[in-house]
Write a protein that binds this DNA or RNA. Structure first.
Lengths: 198, 198, 198, 198
DNA sequence: AATGAATGAGACTTCATTCAT
DNA sequence: AATGAATGAAGTCTCATTCAT
């Protein structure tokens, strides 16, 4: 029920700072990913994202129709950027041996940045497993990954490598004990052992 | 607008007082998993779980110190039951060929029950990726899976199969297009091609 | 999206006063009518009613599923109480002359209490004109009024008197100039001139 | 969840800049009445009126000092137009019998247009019952109605007919059961029975 | 031992209004 | 003259938790 339209009273507001900030929408999306990485999709709220992006709370529903739209855009951006970077690395690989190294690095995911991305990836997957709407994102992402791998490998091998990257890096992350990097190389060896020349 | 709250003059409900109900705690845990499968960890609340378990709201904080304890117990139970079932199936396999079939079925995850379990698995992984406390669950689960696989395969092969089950079944679930089951068999073939006899 | 379940921190809350107040629901309804009389249905809010009833804001949605339910109950009570009082007065009238006087008083509505009731009546009518759900209230109210009038007058006369009470008292209230009470008596005279003996 | 906000890369809408639009103010007033008829004064907002009038939100506070001014102008126009039409019909009536018919039609208010007008009338009355400022509108309206009736009837009769039109048409509208049109004619008969020749 | 009642915090959203253009 | 962008206030509602019973 709306405002009862109070009589205009003497306004002595403390000079509201009104910034012109054309990049604000982008900042909100980035802040949303930061907040998800920290507290998970389960912990995201308009308030937290607004604070992280340093924008007023009212900006949130001004720029986005709701948390769901924001989440969808944020994960779309995340998947797109991840895909682009992976494709760049695969494109930069000039020999089969270099391509192999890139794949192994994906499986190992050692850096802090990798940890953040692993969390965000899992959050996206969880959403996609439950909500079909998010599967357009995961579908595009997987297709892009395979396309990048097909620069160097045949389609079936690409698919197997992609799935193994997923499984191995995930299992490393979910374990409390360290994993031997040799396992990663064994995985690649065996998958490539049956490959057709690309 | 709905009308769930009874009019004051109609407050003579039959009061099914169920004072001694030793299975109540278990029912809450099971209901919690149902609610997670439906609305995700992000959507769980004491109220929803209490309603799903047909238990008074006050029971929730009486039996559990908080949502976090409940989630941990629920996912522990889920992982344990899943592990037990997988071990039973691997134990029942009498030949390498039968073991292979069990692994392929895990990768395919076709049934509705599998869908539910896939969602719950993802929710747990997502929690574990962010919160170390949940990694004791995933660690134990993965160890149990590998132990079951080691009934038929050498340790490295077991680890690779386990990771491939993860990656392939997940990628199938997150795609909007159907996957060719032949890929699953190619994966197993290649991983086993380098295996030592168990 | 729910609470991310913060760790329990040291609570130094200032002793929340938790009153046992079994009549609270009724007080809210009465306060709601007061607020409507003051700022109209257009100006009602949970906050204002809670403040008027001196209850916490959270009580509002605890006791009522929403503003709409509260409005409906409030107007139901208002109509019921008004009806009861009118019937009592008509019952107390022992002669046709006394009944006539009661009707004239209804048309004149001079007191401050009458002003309040006139406002509430209009607010209810406005809601009922737009929302069918509220017409069960107005329907019952009009039926009760006519039944009370039929203690002394034939049905058609009762209906005409009822409508004239409505029209005359409303026009008096909406005018900026005073109305001559003689008009009220002329109205009754003419309507009764065609009446059958009750 | 809907998706009304355009993606950032799709922001090349055709921009129908309508800089000079002298009828815009009128359109806003008409749209305001439409919105009131639909959601009530309680539900009116600048946004809804702007959308209904197809004008930019910023136009609202540019053309009107606030919602209160807009409401006042809208109801003034509504009352004026209603009055004019009633006067025209009474003027067109050439015989007492024709005047009688016009009055009966007012009491019956059968058309959909009548329903809309009944709602708007009630909304105005409700405002006027609470806020003196709106009583200038109702006062002028009632005076005009009576003047039109006095083309055919003496002043007291005019006043009684006017009030009965109000009461009977309102009671018809607020009832859930149909009313017998004979009651309307009985009302007119009895009121006219005591009339002086005009 | 168990629970219904109650509450304050915080969730999302809509709103009137302002300001730079 | 006119308006798109932006924001703080306030709206409704859900929630975990506490307390008296």
């Amino acid at each position: 029920m709306p405002d009862p339209r109070p009589e205009p009273e003497a306004a002595d507001a403390p000079r509201p700072v009104r910034r012109h900030d054309p990049d604000r929408r982008n900042r909100i999306i980035d802040a949303c990913l930061d907040v998800i990485a920290e507290v998970g999709v389960a912990g995201v709220s308009h308030r937290k994202v607004a604070a992280a992006a340093d924008v007023p709370l009212g900006s949130m529903t001004y720029h986005f129709d709701g948390m769901d739209q924001l989440l969808h855009e944020a994960f779309s951006r995340f998947a797109q950027e991840f895909s682009d970077r992976f494709r760049a690395r695969m494109t930069a690989a000039r020999t089969p041996e270099q391509a192999r190294l890139v794949v192994a690095e994906q499986m190992l995911r050692e850096s802090l940045r990798d940890q953040r991305e692993l969390i965000l990836t899992q959050e996206l997957y969880t959403l996609a497993a439950r909500v079909p709407r998010y599967r357009t994102i995961t579908n595009a992402w997987m297709a892009a990954s395979r396309a990048a791998l097909e620069l160097h490998f045949d389609p079936v091998t690409a698919r197997l490598l992609d799935a193994s990257v997923e499984g191995l890096s995930l299992h490393r992350a979910l374990d409390t004990e360290p994993h031997d990097p040799a396992v990663v190389h064994a995985a690649i060896d065996r998958i490539l052992s049956g490959a057709n020349p690309a």
